[in-house]
Design a protein around this nucleic acid. Structure first.
Length: 505
RNA sequence: GGCCCGUUCGUCUAGGGGUUAGGACGCAUCCCUUUCACGGAUGAAACACGGGUUCGAUUCCCGUACGGGCUACCA
């Protein structure tokens, strides 16, 4: 019988969760949805030196904003396997229990080496032209551990409380095979695997031990994580095996990485061309701060949609999906093996698609605070109409104001290219007359304006729409001209024409 | 350096032993439009290279190159 699908996202609270992490969370979430399983948030805070205040809450907030909600775990209501924070689980002694089991079985050992001794070992090996210095089956014979020290000495050191770690005893030369859902069979020789530290000298487990213990105890069915974990997977296989849990271990899936657009490595937070964090993040350690997708104006639906299509595709040509649709479609079979460069331009396009789905009322709700922050006020109908006109040109609501400033503030300058090209000796007289014609209009609406404009040309000669646009808005582009003039109102348009005609000669 | 993973238009990708190698973003052109945009149409643009296997390889295998990851008492 197939195990119930239970997957987890297990970040460490060492900083803001970036988009790569969110994507990993998303794929876990979607897989759980697809199979009616559980999605768990576990906090892997075993490194006390890297703990960052606020990071855990950030992770919770970021997932919440994205709509990627765990149904079990830290911040989302603990489930039957609480606690979900490894630092708390450590207090329960569960990691030590498994470590002791490994030691008892002869698959792990105590190591008393100091940092200096470890460095000396690495230097010695480097000097001896060893390409990859590591604590392994060969080098451990020259180190201070329970394999080289006498039993009495080890007991004495332990009783004294001498600082020590527990290391995995990796066999000398053994082929380790494992199956990855995305990559198929992977084979690694154990000589490539070092004697990983399982329990640190502060008593905390390392990731290697902790995630295995937790995945087993929490009945995780699939371990889905980034490709950066692939090289340590063989060590993990060994741990499961020595614990007698190889048949109970979760299936493995290593996701391709999200790469920088220019093709230089994993996406990094030091990137200025686009946000890398879902929400703005301020690092309390170095006071650096980063703009988030939310604050940059992205809709969470768009952000999630972008992420879903980075490394996965539905198998057809569709690209716009809700979270729910994704949850019905997602499969690891359709996840790529190769890393995907993130394309900020396409991300904007996705947001535009979602922007266009919004009603003018919704856009007005979002735009009103922006307008007010500029110290400007307009009535609701004006704002709704403005949104209707301007949205076709925008990717984000936060572009609305810059795109249509002239709806709120009279222009002070006039597009020089258009003026140079279209303003001539007759223009002043011609448009002064047009102003007079407009002044005589009683019904100030789009159709009347358009008809009046067309009719006026019989007497005034050929008029230019773009020139009229520049005279009234200052800029060369914008929404429907007569819609715009209608919105602005008769008094405002006449005043603007006066100002323009006065300024241009 | 070593080990692991990967490689289809600039980017995200579909496809897969015999195809005009499909779509999307971006770009260009045209149509619509006396403005602006949307929209529509069209176009330029890819199977990294070399060997095999095969009647036939972009597709399968092996090398090479290139890219990425890992190489901590970090995750």
């Amino acid at each position: 019988m197939e195990k119930r699908v239970r997957v987890r996202f297990a970040p460490s609270p060492t900083g803001g969760l970036h988009m790569g992490g969110v994507r990993t969370a998303l794929f876990n979430y979607l897989f759980a949805k697809k199979h009616g399983g559980d999605f768990i948030l576990r906090i892997e805070d075993t490194d006390q030196t890297r703990f960052v205040d606020g990071a855990e809450q950030y992770i919770i907030d970021a997932l919440t904003w994205c709509g990627i909600k765990p149904n079990e775990g830290v911040g989302f209501g603990d489930g039957p396997y609480a606690p979900y924070r490894q630092s708390e689980r450590k207090e329960l002694g569960i990691y030590k229990k498994y470590a002791d089991q490994l030691i008892a079985g002869g698959h792990a050992y105590y190591a008393f080496d100091t940092e200096e001794e470890l460095n000396a070992m690495r230097e010695r090996l480097t000097a001896a032209k060893v390409v990859a210095p590591q604590y392994n089956a060969v080098t451990r014979q020259n180190m201070r551990n329970s394999l080289t020290l006498s039993e009495d000495e080890v007991k004495r050191l332990l009783d004294e409380g001498a600082p020590h770690v527990v290391r995995l005893k990796v066999p000398r030369n053994e082929e380790i095979r494992f199956h990855d859902i995305i990559r198929g069979w992977v084979v690694v020789n154990s000589t490539q695997v070092d004697d990983k530290v399982l329990l640190k000298s502060d008593g905390m487990p390392t990731y290697h031990l902790a995630h295995i213990v937790d995945d087993i105890e929490m009945k995780i069915s699939h371990a889905v994580r980034g490709e950066e974990w692939l090289p340590s997977a063989p060590a993990h296989i060994l741990i499961y095996r020595y614990l007698g849990l190889e048949n109970d271990m979760p299936k493995l899936a290593h996701l391709p990485l999200i790469l920088n657009p220019d093709g230089n490595g994993k996406i990094s937070k030091r990137e200025s061309r686009f946000p890398v964090f879902p929400l703005s993040w301020s690092d309390p350690r170095d006071k650096s701060s980063y703009l988030g997708y939310k604050e940059a104006g992205y809709y969470p639906e768009a952000f999630v949609n972008v992420l879903a299509l980075l490394g996965w595709n539905p198998g057809n040509n569709e690209e716009i999906f809700t979270l729910e649709q994704l949850g019905n479609l997602f499969e690891f079979e359709r996840v790529n093996k190769s890393g995907a460069k993130f394309d900020p331009e396409k991300a904007k396009w996705f947001n535009q698609q979602y922007l266009r789905k919004k009603t003018d009322e919704e856009l007005a709700d979002a735009f009103t605070p922006i307008l007010e922050s500029k110290g400007l006020k307009k009535d609701r109908a004006f704002i709704v109409e403005f949104c209707r006109l301007i949205k076709e040109k925008a990717h984000f609501v936060n572009e609305f104001y810059d795109l249509g400033t002239y709806f709120f503030v009279a222009p002070t300058g006039y597009d020089e290219k258009v003026i140079a090209k279209k303003w001539n000796a007759q223009s002043k007289e011609q448009y002064t007359k047009l102003r007079t014609v407009f002044a005589g209009i009683s019904a100030w609406d789009t159709h009347t304006l358009h008809d009046t404009f067309n009719a006026a040309q019989t007497d005034l000669g050929k008029l230019d729409m773009q020139l009229l646009r520049v005279l009234t808005s200052g800029v060369a582009g914008g929404p429907q001209l007569f819609d715009m003039l209608a919105m602005l109102g008769k008094d405002e348009v006449l005043a603007r024409l006066d100002a323009a005609l006065n300024k241009l000669s």
